[in-house]
Structure formats: structure tokens, C-alpha cells
Design a protein around this nucleic acid. Structure first.
Lengths: 160, 160
DNA sequence: TCCTGATACTTAGCAAAGCTAAAGAAATGG
DNA sequence: CCATTTCTTTAGCTTTGCTAAGTATCAGGA
């Protein structure tokens, strides 16, 4: 199809929506990165910290799974967060191979500040939208997390 | 506010929505990157190519502006796309400093294939959603692009 | 007890994408 | 004609992502 604007007749709505969400996500993140740049907390670190604050302590592997990255990537993110005093790494008393990563009080506090700073400009723009549009975006954020988030790994042992 | 889970009473809905969109965007992009990894076209290249295909030829600076990156970043993206034969760089006849970047036919074709490949898994999941939810996401993609996209730079000269 | 295999994390090393600073070339304006 | 501005590139840095390989621990069986 060499005619991009030719409104593909039987093209799937889902496929086009996926492509547009992809594009919107790229531009959204670039926008937020430009706005921030002063919080000292990059997006991946903020995101990982957020999981720990709102979801409680996790092993490195579980955190990597929740964040959709490989363990070595998470090792580095956690190292940076630990160096900044935002998380701690404890030995897992039940498994000598594993570590338990926990947000510190400083981490909890910085999360709010950092997140607010990063999203403040976007929030201002969203606040200018009609309430109806804002509701659509809120609903969409929910739906997206549901679609994108991997199902929690089945508990391998008695970790309930 | 030091109690993250304390459901801040007067907190702004816009602020919370912004934070959740941020999180959803991060996870969406990581998910898509995992799915892809075979198209040979990374997300930033795909995105830049998309702007050129659907929006027509642009100068490097304009493309960088549209994509919310700095010129040196776009220089490198364009170099990679050119090396792959997906775009061309011509001299601007009206301004010897500028270049005009244009998608090739190969670029137009690969855009569709690459985008489809990258978003296919997501599209499949979206297709499984209720029509109502899909409509919400489509609308959200629209709204987000509108909020996030910078207003087109005022035409500095006769470039209409 | 001592292997054997699986699992959890780290280390090493690579590529891509983002940035700033600064250089080179061309346009603009006095 | 010269100074300034603008557009792009180059150089070099950081961060994030990956795979491959190494180390430590756990679990099960001979």
C-alpha cells in the first residue's frame, strides 16, 4: 500500500489503535523527559521505585518481571536507587540466592516529589481539558496497564 | 503528604492521571520492544519514519521538533534510516544550510510492515477487548497526541 | 554425604538513544 | 564587508536495554 492516506478499507481498528498508542507513548515520554531533567530521578528509576512504594518489597526478579525488563537491567536500576538511599537490599531469610528490595522513607518521599515534578506540566495540560476527555484518559490508563502488565507469576513456594 | 497509599483527598485528578499515563507509557513501550526485536526498525526510527511518511518531507530541525528530540539525536536517527535506504537527504534549494529529508518508497513500505510487526501482539490483545474499551483507547490516543505534540513552529519564511 | 541440575543474581560487554558543547557553513543585516 | 544568527554535524558523555557467562544457593537423588 503506497498510499498512506488512503484509509485502508478492511484494516483492523485494533491494529490502527495499537499503532497510534505506540506513537502517543513515545511522544509522551519524550515530552516528560524534557520537562523533568532536574528531579535527578530518571523514568525507569521512578517507575521501579513506584512499584516498590505502592506494591511493597519485592525480589529483584519479581521487580524485573513487573517492570518488563531483564534481571541485569534491574540490577543496575536498583544499584542506582540504593546508591541514592531510596531503596535497601536485604538478604531473603528463606532463600540465600534472592534479595529483598524495599523502598526507604526517603524513597517514598522522593517518589511523590519526583513524580509530581515530572508530570506537573502534563497535569497542567490535562487539567485544561474538558472533564469528559480527562475521564477518557484516566480510563485509558487503566485499560493500558491491564493489557500491558504481565499476569503475576504463580507463587513458586509458600510466599503468600 | 507522606502517606502514599492514603488516597489524597483533595489531590488533583489531573495529576494522578498524568502519573498513571506516564507509568502506562513506560510499560507499553517496554512491552512493544520485547515483542519486536526482529523488525530491524527501532521505535525512535519507526516513529521518525512515520512522521515523514504521513506528514511529507521535512527539514532535520522540523523533524526533530516534531519528534521532541534535539537536532543531534535526529541527525543520528536520519543517518541510520538513510543507511538503510528508507529516507533520502536532499539539499534545500532555498537554504544551503538546511536539508530536506524524504521517505523513500522502500521506507513507506517498510513502515507498514515494521509497525504492524511491532504492534501486532498489542493489536491482538486490543482486539479481544470490548468494543467500548477499544473506543476509549482510540480516543485517548487522539487526545494524547493533541496534548503532547508541540504546536507547529510558526513558518519562519515562505514555507507554506 | 555428595553430585547434578535448576534458579537468582551479578558482572562484562555491546548497541541505541538521549543530551550538551562546540565546530563548520550559509543566510541575514548593519 | 563583517558580525550575528541559524542549521546541521561532530565529539563525547550518560542511561537504558540486551545477551552471555560467572557465582552462589537450593532441591533432589544416588
Amino acid at each position: 500500500m503506497s498510499e498512506p492516506g488512503a484509509s485502508p478499507p478492511s484494516d483492523d481498528l485494533a491494529a490502527r489503535t495499537a499503532a497510534r498508542l505506540h506513537s502517543a507513548a513515545i511522544h509522551l515520554l519524550r515530552r516528560l523527559r524534557r520537562e523533568d531533567n532536574a528531579s535527578g530521578l530518571t523514568a525507569p528509576r521512578l517507575s521501579a521505585l513506584s512499584v516498590l512504594v505502592f506494591g511493597g518489597p519485592l525480589s529483584l526478579g519479581a521487580l524485573a518481571g513487573a517492570e518488563q525488563v531483564r534481571p541485569p537491567t534491574m540490577t543496575r536500576l536498583v544499584a542506582a536507587l540504593e546508591w541514592d538511599g531510596l531503596v535497601t537490599r536485604e538478604a531473603d531469610p528463606r532463600d540465600g540466592r534472592a534479595i529483598i528490595i524495599r523502598a526507604t522513607e526517603a524513597g517514598k518521599h522522593l517518589l511523590e516529589a519526583g513524580r509530581d515534578r515530572r508530570t506537573a506540566a502534563l497535569a497542567r495540560q490535562l487539567a485544561a481539558l474538558p472533564a469528559e476527555d480527562l475521564a477518557v484518559l484516566e480510563r485509558a490508563a487503566d485499560l493500558l496497564e491491564g493489557v500491558v502488565t504481565p499476569p503475576p507469576a504463580p507463587p513458586r513456594r509458600g510466599e503468600g
